[in-house]
């Protein structure tokens, strides 16, 4: 009985939507359509990136302009590891985890003690340090040309067939999404959200704001780095562009589009964003202009993002609050 109750507590609209999406992504591989699989892979990678980003932004209320740093750390760890140490994409991707962990802790020590405005500025500055280091340390990083030839075929796994790589990404995607979902449901997820809304009260409850923020940053950093690692293997190339702050602002835009206060918001945003960039952006060269306008419109009129908009529609038709992530 107890187990059943625990299980029921874990099930809500989010997990059903998530499982449906994973199933759907699995089905896409059977079509064998290269372009669909390409888009789906990008959606998964950026979905991971945006969901990781939103742990800081949507949960902890910390605006980072420097998440390109974490993405870049993931991408470059895979590249450097597989090219210089051990030629295997799986081990390479896993190797990026401890590196990202270490990076997150250093970044946290440097940025988390000074309040939210400083956090935004300092993360931006740190990502620029990293970016300029990538460009300047040519002997290690290949400078602005980046590193090429990141292997898909390794000692342990061979991901050179598109379908195999697709499943490889899907497994990571599913594992990370389910992990984040469990985090949400845990007491810790609740504390993190309290961090975003009632941070002044937390010390009275016996929690250090700094520690909670540090943990949020670490999870966010590692998840973002994993996205970067998959990205590097996917393209077999990595350039400093991924560490540039405008790239790091993309998950922010995704979170806002989807709705940063919803569990699945960033993922929805990633789906929209990737679909648009891979289709519309080919035709409209200056689509960033539209993006900026959309961003301002969202901030002025729909701060809840797409899911917030849908929820208010649903509320109007009394469809309930299936979208809302409940604690």
């Amino acid at each position: 009985m107890y187990m059943l109750r625990r299980l029921r507590a874990l099930i809500d609209g989010n997990i059903i939507a998530l499982l449906l999406l994973i199933g759907l992504l699995g089905l896409i591989s059977f079509t064998g359509h290269r372009f669909y699989m390409y888009i789906a892979t990008l959606i998964m990678i950026f979905g991971i990136f945006a969901m990781g980003y939103n742990i800081l932004f949507g949960y902890a209320g910390l605006l980072s302009f420097g998440h390109g740093l974490f993405f870049g750390v993931g991408a470059y760890s895979v590249a450097l590891f597989t090219l210089n140490v051990y030629r295997d994409p799986l081990v390479g991707v896993l190797f990026s985890i401890p590196i990202a962990l270490l990076t997150s802790i250093i970044v946290g020590i440097l940025t988390l003690k000074h309040g939210r405005v400083y956090f935004a500025i300092l993360t931006l500055a740190l990502s620029m340090i990293f970016w300029s280091a990538l460009i300047k340390l040519r002997w290690l990083t290949g400078g602005s040309d980046g590193l090429v030839g990141i292997p898909k075929r390794g000692v342990l796994v061979d991901l050179s067939a598109p379908t195999v790589f697709y499943y490889f990404t899907l497994v990571f995607f599913a594992a990370i999404m389910l992990g984040l979902y469990m985090l949400n449901k845990s007491r810790y997820g609740l504390l993190l959200r309290a961090l975003g809304t009632n941070e002044d009260r937390l010390p009275f409850l016996g929690y250090s704001t700094f520690t909670l923020r540090m943990i949020a940053l670490t999870i966010s950093g590692v998840v973002s780095a994993l996205a970067g690692a998959l990205y590097a293997v996917f393209y077999s190339v990595v350039t400093p562009d991924v560490a540039y702050w405008t790239f790091g602002a993309e998950p922010l835009v995704m979170s806002l589009i989807g709705g940063s206060s919803y569990f699945l918001g960033p993922l929805v945003g990633a789906i929209i964003f990737v679909s648009l960039t891979t289709t519309v952006a080919r035709f409209a060269e200056y689509w960033m202009l539209l993006l900026g306008a959309a961003l301002i419109a969202m901030i002025l009129f729909f701060r809840g993002g797409l899911l917030g908009f849908l929820e208010s529609l649903a509320g109007r038709f009394k469809l309930g609050v299936y979208l809302r992530w409940r604690f």
């Binding site: 605006l63 302009f65 806002l256 960033m288 202009l289 993006l291 900026g292 306008a293 961003l295 901030i299």
Partner: peptide
């Protein structure tokens, strides 16, 4: 911050 960021993108 986000609003001014949007302005920067547009500009």
């Amino acid at each position: 911050l986000l609003a001014t960021f949007g302005v920067a993108l547009i500009a």
